Simulated assay, not measured.
Amino acid sequence: MSQTASSPTLKVLVYSDDVNTRSQVVLALGPRPHPDLPKVEYVEVATEPMVIEHMDGGSIDLAILDGEAVPAGGMGIARQLKDEIYNCPPVLVLTGRVEDAWLATWSRAEAAVPHPIDPLRLADVVVRLLRARAGVAAG
């Protein structure tokens, strides 16, 4: 879990080449997806090199990767992260359709949520992943 001077925060990386997709994710989750969790700080990125740079930095608690992003899709990036980063944080992939969830499994992502983004479904999955990362019991 990332630490700031005043209180703990969780850092969530949101990757998509589409600014609207990134905005939808951030708006769906808000600054605190659940009262049991610390505040969330979002790191929005639009390119694969920036995803790698932030993930290599070790301060990210959850990565949300758009599987429909171009030229580098989130599923391929997820698989690369899982191959290359020891103790990689959880990864959630946004898939093009519900039927693409099996591809997220191939990518080694811990979870998948389909487009169009359902804010309630996204929040449920993100809260589950962040609770595990932050060591917060479900309540």
Rank of each mutant, 00 (worst) to 15 (best):
L92D: 05
A123D: 02
G57E: 06
L103F: 08
V91A: 09
D61N: 14
P31V: 06
D36P: 00
G58I: 10
K39M: 12
Y86E: 14
W102V: 12
A138Q: 13
E44L: 04
E44P: 01
E110R: 11
T95P: 06
A132Q: 14
N87G: 05
D56E: 14
P49H: 10
G57A: 15
L13M: 11
R128V: 10
V127E: 05
A137M: 07
A112R: 03
V98D: 12
T9R: 13
N87R: 14
V43R: 01
T95R: 03
R108P: 02
R22D: 04
L65N: 04
E99F: 07
N87K: 10
S16Q: 03
V91M: 08
L62Q: 04
P114A: 09
V126G: 07
N20C: 04
L81M: 14
P114N: 09
S2E: 12
T105D: 13
V113I: 12
A5H: 06
V98T: 13
K11G: 01
V136A: 06
Q80C: 02
L94H: 09
A78H: 06
A63P: 07
A134E: 10
A104P: 07
S16W: 00
A132K: 13
V43W: 01
V14C: 02
P116H: 08
R121G: 12
E99L: 12
W106R: 09
R128H: 13
M75A: 08
A123T: 15
S107L: 05
G58C: 11
V43G: 00
A104S: 15
A101G: 07
K11Y: 01
V12R: 00
V43Q: 02
L81Y: 09
G67N: 11
E84I: 08
H54C: 11
S107R: 02
A111C: 08
E99A: 15
R97H: 12
K82F: 10
R108H: 13
G57R: 05
K82S: 08
A101E: 15
H34P: 01
M55D: 08
A137H: 03
L13E: 05
D66P: 09
R128E: 14
R121Y: 02
A104Q: 04
L62Y: 02
S59P: 00
R108V: 03
P31I: 06
H34Q: 09
M75S: 12
D18A: 13
C88V: 09
G135P: 03
P33E: 11
G74M: 06
L92K: 03
R79M: 12
V70E: 15
D18K: 12
A46R: 13
R97V: 11
H54F: 10
I117Q: 01
T21S: 07
V26N: 00
A5T: 11
D61A: 15
A134H: 04
P38I: 10
Y42G: 00
P49L: 09
V136P: 07
H115A: 12
V25I: 15
E68V: 13
H115S: 07
A101M: 06
I77V: 15
A69M: 05
E44V: 00
Y15A: 01
D83E: 14
Q24I: 02
Y42K: 00
L10K: 01
A123N: 15
V127L: 04
E44T: 03
M50F: 08
M1T: 12
P71E: 11
G96K: 13
S16N: 04
V26H: 00
E41C: 01
S23F: 09
A104M: 04
H115P: 07
V127R: 04
T105P: 00
S2N: 08
R97Y: 10
L62M: 08
